[in-house]
Design a binder for these strands. Structure first.
Lengths: 159, 159
DNA sequence: CGTGAAAAATGTTTCGG
DNA sequence: CCGAAACATTTTTCACG
């Protein structure tokens, strides 16, 4: 059983997705104006986009600086063993760590790419011990300190 | 004039932020129940959190697979020159590219970390030519293909 | 800050085309 | 599938404790 790999979206759907990826609290009336449909039409389409999972979720994004987590780090992790259970255990460890905002399993010379979001270096080094050294199966890791978050977010091009 | 580096959040604010980072379309009544406040209190706090910028924006997240952009790549870019204008030009190029979902300027052996989101390898290689080769000031880049998006999103720990 | 209720805005459903 | 109108829900505002 496989996930549906595509859904049919027309130009209206794309415009709606474009709008709500910027602001999903905007009144339907405004979206309706922008895309050239009536409010009920937009409502129906949004409902369908949510039911089918095209719109995965609706969330607030908080400013990490203003809540005291100004530091972002990107970390490449290379594992010792590629054994499935061990890799899965790592995945789970990373997923469970709240300060790890993003985790990708990748091909190539490294195995995982992580994005950390922490209060300061002290918190990071402490986490490092916990999930890299004590966690197990980590051969090495390389840390990049983010100096400028040039572009962030989860926006997807729907064009 | 500098940006305020912190705001005072009490336990209620944190719980509210935690809730809306999961679902910002949830009726205030439900959030109120969850955090133990009245609806008007939650409304007031949310309004303030938005005014002060703690809540940066409110958005829908779309499923990249379902809209035909299943491929994610992470790319390390090393620049030729560190001259400010040239780095700024690169920033702008990356920011302007819709398929570049995220761009970080980092310390260390590489200068930029990029997250691409594209339809297929063909689209990626084409982009590569455009913004790396023709764009200028790129000494080298290293591509990691994402096999599993273990954890994604922009969630920030407010605890 | 809580309550309660009224007012305004928004979202949803119905139904004819 | 669209849109207009009726309908339902949610959000906002306010007085008062």
């Amino acid at each position: 059983m496989r996930k549906t790999v595509s859904v049919s979206l027309d130009e209206f759907d794309r415009k709606i997705l474009d709008a709500v990826q910027d602001d999903n609290l905007s009144p339907l009336r405004l979206i309706a104006d922008k895309v050239g449909l009536s409010v009920p039409a937009v409502a129906r389409r949004l409902q369908r986009l949510r039911e089918t999972g095209v719109i995965e979720k609706d969330i607030s994004v908080v400013d990490q600086d203003l809540v005291g987590r100004p530091l972002t780090l990107i970390v490449e992790v290379t594992s010792e063993s590629e054994r499935l259970e061990l890799l899965d255990a790592m995945r789970e460890r990373f997923r469970a760590c709240p300060q790890i905002q993003q985790c990708y399993y990748v091909t190539g010379q490294v195995d995982f790419m992580l994005v950390f979001n922490v209060r300061d270096m002290e918190e990071y080094t402490a986490l490092t011990r916990q999930i890299f050294f004590e966690g197990g199966n980590v051969e090495s890791f390389r840390t990049f300190v983010v100096m400028d978050r040039v572009k962030t977010g989860m926006r997807t091009v729907v064009g």
